[in-house]
Nucleic acid binder design. Sequence first.
DNA 1: CAAAGTAGTTGTATAATACACTTAAATGTT
DNA 2: AACATTTAAGTGTATTATACAACTACTTTG
Lengths: 142, 142
Amino acid sequence: MSHETNTSIELEIALLIRRLTSISTGRKFGTLDRSAYLLLGQIESHGSAGVKALAEEFRLDISTVSRQTSALEQKGYVYKMPDPEDGRAYFYQLTDEGRRMLEETRQQRTERIDELLKDWSEDERTRFGELLAKFNRTYLDD
Amino acid sequence: MSHETNTSIELEIALLIRRLTSISTGRKFGTLDRSAYLLLGQIESHGSAGVKALAEEFRLDISTVSRQTSALEQKGYVYKMPDPEDGRAYFYQLTDEGRRMLEETRQQRTERIDELLKDWSEDERTRFGELLAKFNRTYLDD
DNA sequence: CAAAGTAGTTGTATAATACACTTAAATGTT
DNA sequence: AACATTTAAGTGTATTATACAACTACTTTG
């Protein structure tokens, strides 16, 4: 059973949910809640970003993301760099602690998926991951 | 492109979300919000039920479902029959209006999926529906 | 029959969200 | 160059789905 496949699946599910729903009352899958997990993941994979870019990525209101990044900053998972080219804007970047938490959460979530899909065939998991990814991309273009 | 396949997909997605998250701030896909849609669908497919059974089905707190069914009753989509065998309990049943709304919403949601997946192959849509269904069942047994 | 358990409701708190407004900086127009 | 418009971010407020706790009325059990 491929660990990478399951990592992909759990990420795609988290994204699917983010696209389709709003909140998730404290229903944590790992140490970080979903919004924190997705934000940190986005910053990790696409580099530092401002509130506006993050809000667009996740189809959330800027005010919502502003509060979420604020919370992440408070916890020391990200820090804010002023954009040298635009006095209004900032770039959020991961701290070492943020990177550590992200990895820890990713591992916890992946383990959860490992357990849930332990009886699925390799082919099923691969296919499911691919299709969720495709669906999430389809949804994005809407 | 099979309409039935897409109906199945949208139902499974709604279920997936219900399982994994909590709320969805007014993010309606049709006339009914997700909780109303799922509750009416459950009553339609599994027959009249009380608050407790519905809460268990959707892994929600009884108080949450109590409020949701209350709202549905208020809108005239369900009515409450006292359980003849248990003076504390009730059975919620669909009204004609509720059945109509359910069907309308189902159609709207399915159309949305039709549109989203218009470029997917028949095989992909079938497979995605199957896998989501399988995943939801897997999740249930947790 | 009294005690414990249960179905449902209601009160209260929480959390993620949107929308409206604000502030400060950037951009565009005459 | 001055003023108007736009824009990035933050803040105030309302909404909503949810959980937990307390309560009521009924049922089951010892």
